[in-house]
Write a protein that binds this DNA or RNA. Structure first.
Lengths: 147, 147
DNA sequence: GTAGTTGCAAACTTTTTGCCGCGCA
DNA sequence: TGCGCGGCAAAAAGTTTGCAACTAC
């Protein structure tokens, strides 16, 4: 009995496109991920997935997250703090970066074309083609800034 | 009996300057670190330290590395691969970045003034003061490059 | 029908911690 | 001499895996 606990999602489609079996658990995890615009770690992902369908174990979340990463569906990020965090890989080219608030740990995403170009030229000059950039800037809110 | 297993080192001095007790183990670890220009993880550090003085436990390496980090002597880096890696913090301002060879995993350090300036202005524009930058670029050696 | 997937619990890996004797300042 | 440090081994925290049952295709 195919007992659908949650609807399809863009990530579920991607999953099919890559020829991966779309099990109930994967559909759920894909749904949760499609619905997230932050950078959850595995435990947080597990919490959200269980809220949708309690028949998911954390081992499955780990396995799925790894599978999705290997298939270019997810990207692993490391913001310090010991646990891996994940976000949807937005195709080859909307490179974005992370500004981390030093006091709150909050992650702010941003893009910057000039930065893209500069990084590209630096790497090229050293004889490499740019594959991925991982940039996190830790910053402290300037005195006089709004709360 | 003060039984010196290894000489003082720039990091040992720094250690004293911060008012930290300079024990034999710390001197050894400081020595090993001063002597390293790569990015060892704790286990590698432990291996190198034990080679100098076998009376060191891995717990001490963990404790020392954390202590040094808290005192701005070391910086923790995350190149993926699960374990934290460390390098000597070169004072406030010789910010440098890492280019990681996608095929070999080799880490190439570089500096770039233009990049420093651009990052600084980006962060400032968002109302923050730059504290630290963590930038790793993964690149693949261009076809036709030397080996 | 079958190969691939899941849940569970146990194993593993990396890092932290409690306790007590010891060494640095 | 006193307070903090280090060794040891056990515990925590995060992640992976073996196995038998199950499910998508």
């Amino acid at each position: 009995m195919k007992d659908v606990t949650c609807p399809d999602s863009p990530l579920a489609d991607l999953c099919r496109q890559r020829g991966l079996k779309l099990t109930g658990q994967r559909r759920t995890i894909a749904f949760v991920l499609s619905d997230s615009d932050d950078h959850p770690d595995v435990e947080e992902l597990y919490r959200r997935a269980v809220a949708v369908d309690p028949r998911i174990s954390i081992a499955t979340v780990y396995r799925t997250v790894r599978l999705f990463e290997e298939n270019g569906i997810l990207q692993r990020r490391d913001f310090g703090g010991g646990r891996a965090r994940y976000e949807v890989a937005d195709g080859e080219h909307s490179d974005h970066y992370h500004l981390i608030d030093a006091s709150t740990g909050k992650v702010i995403e941003f893009e910057n074309a000039e930065l893209n170009a500069l990084l590209d030229s630096i790497v090229r000059e050293k004889g490499y083609d740019l594959v991925t950039t991982r940039l996190s800037i830790v910053g402290r809110r300037k005195a006089g800034g709004e709360d």
